[in-house]
Amino acid sequence: MDLEVEAYLRPPEMDMPPYPPKVITLATGGKMVVRQATREDVPTILQAVKPTIEIERDFYDIVGVRVYAELLGWYRHRMRDMFCLIGQIDGYLVGQVNTRAYSEKLDISLHTLAIERGLRIGAHLFAAKMEYSFEYLGREEVLITAESPIGFRRWMIEYELELREGQHELGGAAPYALTRELYYKHKDRLVAGERPVPDKLMEVAEREIKVVSEQDIVEKILGAKRRIKR
């Protein structure tokens, strides 16, 4: 690698205080650890993202392929000021969320990808990234858009998002904003998690990001194959 040229290509990076990990008790009683992923975690996370890029249901394909590109871009220093939070149950990766900073006042929410479904993993992780933007990074506003009807329903209505002019970085539907005020208004209803994470749980989460097989990921998203006999 020509490091001299590389230096031109790498974006500058803002300092971000770390996201303190938390643990969420799910409807099953299971514990999901939510913590910040590092660049080094990216190749492992991509293993879980890869099988989603061919799943049409709920626009997993669009979200998956974009998350793949965003994480890769961040890993190889082509994506500026991004953070990624992951959810793990017993060490297993169940979802990721990522956001990019536009300025010290404004974050751009990128994607929410849940691998385990039916447990509000996506909703919990989305809330966690908003928590990071407002409570730890001190942003005034986060720009949000949706690529799937599920995202639309959850984010726009649950958080009473405000419509904004212009475009979201993803170039799709109209951008909406979660403001600091709206975040705090809805926080108690939507943001879960307890800190600190008990040592034992944290140790399991940090030891290894486990990823289930590609087939299991497809089944978790589509439901096990129980087709109509014809």
Partner: peptide, 22 residues
Amino acid sequence: HIQMKITMEGILEHPQSHINSP
């Protein structure tokens, strides 16, 4: 349709269960 075990802690007893079961 739903093949998932849920617990009293997760849907009612835990102080944040209202977020799982809004």
